[in-house]
Design a protein around this nucleic acid. Structure first.
Lengths: 238, 238
DNA sequence: CGGCGTTTTGAGCCAGCTCAACTGCTGTGG
DNA sequence: CCACAGCAGTTGAGCTGGCTCAAAACGCCG
């Protein structure tokens, strides 16, 4: 992989210089020399929405960093009932460390760009560099906090509160502005949203219509959402 | 703290020799010398059922290992709705690493015995010993897997399947026998079970009565449960 | 412009909730 | 040793939020 001398980023691979994982993701703890070594094994891949990235109970040959787009983690019961158990945004790390097979299916929710790392290469680097494991531990703890937050949403909130909570989560993750109002494109279909919230798609649609009727949001083209007032949305999260 | 020379456990503190955390918990990765040093700072405490061990959004002064009993982790909405987001059994580690305050309330579900470790002592040991962080990472990943499993239960299962799933979880954690039939005392009240399953306590009670009527379980004294056939119970988990 | 997948809207139903009464166990005081 | 208070659990009856099934509307692409 190409590298370039640079006063501020001497020896850092070109691709890594603008990558979010380099700044806020796991690569932030790596030395330039480690980054160069790792980048020899990594490969940036694009995947269209709907692509399956890893299947439940299947062995996975590689880990990845999400560079662009949203990945959904799902679990399915024998009779087909499905639940989304997590969403991953750039620059999240993707993959279950220290076990042969993933407990979830990972699927591209929107078009995504991933930076793939072969299993063995990453595990070797982790074994050599405790700071990397520490960083991954921090992300894992954050994911556990988020999973537990979502358990409250699934177990104890009404349909209206669930949909508001979903919009709030997406708004805070996709629109970085600090303004009161935010807007973004939903990375999930109504069916996906239903699978994330433990509802039917009809109920999701009805609740979105209600939020529109109540002037909390506007929806254009079924996908683009304007939140007029984040504080008002938050109040509806229960 | 007292120590004793022993051919097989030279220098290991007496209390640690019979402790589950020494065998399957985080202390399993510590050298005898580290264990001696750590045990100087730890303190075994008993707490009655209902005792609050750590409050949501409050700073915590110590971590702990669960030695006996069950600890419930709960989250509460402003209006009082509650959700149990995790149960911890011996020899689980208790506490949120690397952040000032816990995101959950920890409460003794049954009478419990904890081995308390001051925050600073454990964090120093983790910084010095990557193997310890690795072990804690493994538990964190396991907890994340369990949280995601439970999200499917909360979001997509019926009341009957939820109650069966709860009994299955408790049976596999509390009765280590490999037999088809198992029996144990429920560590949770009906209200707690409801808060774990996202149901009302009346619905929990009705579903337990149904399982009894269907000869899947027997209940004595409201707390003691006999599962006649684990395979049959598992089929009812959805 | 026509066809297909997604979303919205409507109408009726039912699983699980609410409210309420009752049972049974346990501990306490006479 | 019994009466009785208090709490946990059970059971019943009726209601309702979210589900199911069905059809119409919308947006997108050839």
């Amino acid at each position: 992989m190409d590298t370039r001398k640079d006063i501020h980023n001497s020896e850092v691979p070109v691709l890594c210089q603008s990558c979010e994982a380099r700044h806020n993701g796991m690569c932030g703890v790596l030395e330039p020399s480690e980054l160069v070594a790792l980048s020899k094994a990594t490969r940036v891949v694009k995947q269209p929405a709907g692509a399956e990235l890893a299947a439940e109970a299947e062995p996975v040959a590689s880990y990845a960093n999400v560079m662009r787009g949203v990945v959904k983690l799902t679990k399915t019961l024998e009779d087909g009932r499905q639940q989304i158990v997590g969403l991953q945004f750039a620059p999240d790390f993707l993959g279950r460390l220290f076990t042969q097979s993933s407990a979830v299916t990972a699927q591209a929710a929107s078009d995504v760009e991933l930076c793939r790392v072969p299993r063995a290469a990453l595990e070797r680097l982790i074994a050599e560099n405790p700071a990397l494991e520490h960083r991954l531990m921090q992300q894992t703890l954050r994911e556990l906090d988020e999973a537990r937050d979502w358990m409250v949403t699934l177990g104890r909130k009404t349909a209206a509160e669930k949909v508001a909570s979903f919009l709030y989560l997406i708004a805070t993750h996709l629109d970085p502005s600090k303004e009161e109002a935010r807007h973004f494109d939903l990375p999930l279909t109504r069916a996906d949203i239903a699978d994330f919230l433990g509802l039917t798609l009809e109920t999701v649609s009805r609740q979105l219509s209600k939020l529109r009727a109540d002037q909390v949001i506007a929806i254009a083209n079924n996908r683009h959402v304007d939140v007029f007032d984040m504080a008002r949305l938050k109040k509806r999260c229960g």
